[in-house]
Simulated scan of single mutants.
Amino acid sequence: MAEAAIPGSGSAASASVRQAVPDVNAPIWRNALFVAPYLFFFLTLLVVPLFWGVWLSLHKADAFGIGRFVGLDNYFRLFRDKIFLQVIGNTFYFVLLTVPALAVIGLLLALALNRNARTAAALRAVYFASSVLSVTIVTLIWRTVFIGNFGLLATVYGWFGATAPAFLSDPKLAMIGIAIATVWWCIGLPMMLFLSALQQVPREIYEAASLDNASRWGTLWHITLPSIRRTFVLVIIIEIVLQFQLFGQAWLMTKGGPNNASKPIVLYIYEATFIKWDLGLGAAASEILFILIMIAALAQYFISRRKGEEG
């Protein structure tokens, strides 16, 4: 004989089951332990120094400590300094020389080496090899190329009875020489990013284009470039952020000369902070560099995004 069901027992059992099963959408605060190490270094190495730099830029500070509060006086001093205005122009000039070159040359190399052949794989390694070198070795190589009278470039020009351009001593050519060395050094990263993007484009699209007798230029313009548009924007933004921070090449190749023609903002900050010991002025220059990088990167991002939406 079947046992009689106890009234209310089913609802009580279901309630206990619901209590036993945890809610997967409920926050579990102990999971924060997994991101705690990252948050610690993010705060101590990025956020805290950022606000500390702003605070420092508003004070008269030197190697002996922070002095009186001066407000925006350090910023006014910067914009009254002709050398600082010159180094801002130098930095923008360097970015204009390097960022488009890195993006275009990196894309062309990626298009040429986007194959499964062994030769293409070997050439990828060759072009990427320069990226793993230190700035000291890169500048040593290019000083050997550019140095007057005895450099490789002067030797090659001498074979034809010509005089090589003075990339390290001519104020008009110094930044161009540094840009050439930088493009050679940094070309590996944009090339690999473009290669990764090209390998994600479905092959079926290219097969359909070939069946429609599409030309190579048409395929590149209407299929390849739209497919890697986001990667192109990413490369531009990364290179803008990196090239605004020019320091090692300028310091080791020309020391910012001649006549400050190749001095970037970071080298100005280094001299103000660690040579003149004017920490407040160096902090103010650092904040201006941060603002310039942020504005340039955001402008490039929004312009590219708007073009993509219109297209």
Rank of each mutant, 00 (worst) to 15 (best):
E3G: 09
A4H: 10
A5C: 05
I6R: 12
S9L: 13
S11F: 03
A13K: 14
S14L: 15
S16V: 12
R18C: 07
R18K: 13
Q19I: 00
R30H: 12
N31D: 12
L33E: 13
L33F: 08
F34G: 02
V35L: 13
V35C: 03
L39Q: 05
F41S: 10
F41V: 14
L45N: 06
L46H: 11
V48M: 04
V48A: 08
L50F: 15
W52L: 11
L56K: 06
L58A: 14
H59P: 00
A61I: 02
D62V: 08
F64I: 06
G65E: 06
G65Y: 05
V70D: 05
L72R: 06
D73Y: 10
R77A: 12
F79V: 11
F84P: 01
L85H: 01
G89R: 11
T98C: 09
P100C: 06
P100Y: 09
L102V: 11
L102C: 05
I105M: 11
L109C: 06
A112M: 15
R115I: 06
A117S: 15
A117K: 11
R118P: 00
T119L: 13
A121V: 10
A121G: 10
V126C: 10
Y127C: 03
S131Q: 05
I137C: 04
I141L: 14
F146M: 04
I147G: 00
G148I: 10
G148Y: 02
G151W: 04
G151D: 07
A154E: 08
A154M: 05
A154Y: 06
A162K: 15
A162P: 02
T163C: 09
A166N: 11
F167H: 01
F167N: 00
D170H: 06
D170C: 06
K172L: 09
G177T: 06
A179Q: 04
T182I: 02
T182H: 04
V183G: 00
W184D: 02
G188C: 10
P190L: 03
L193K: 00
A197V: 11
L198C: 10
R203M: 09
Y206C: 01
A208N: 08
D212T: 07
A214N: 08
W217P: 01
W217C: 07
I223C: 01
T224C: 11
P226A: 13
V233A: 14
V235E: 02
I236M: 13
I238D: 02
E239S: 08
Q245E: 05
F247K: 03
A250H: 00
P258E: 02
P258C: 07
S262F: 01
K263G: 04
I265L: 04
I269N: 01
Y270P: 00
A272H: 03
T273Y: 03
F274K: 09
I275F: 07
K276L: 10
W277G: 03
G280T: 04
G282V: 03
A284G: 02
A284W: 07
M294Y: 05
F302I: 09
S304E: 07
R305T: 12
K307R: 14
K307T: 13
G311Y: 05
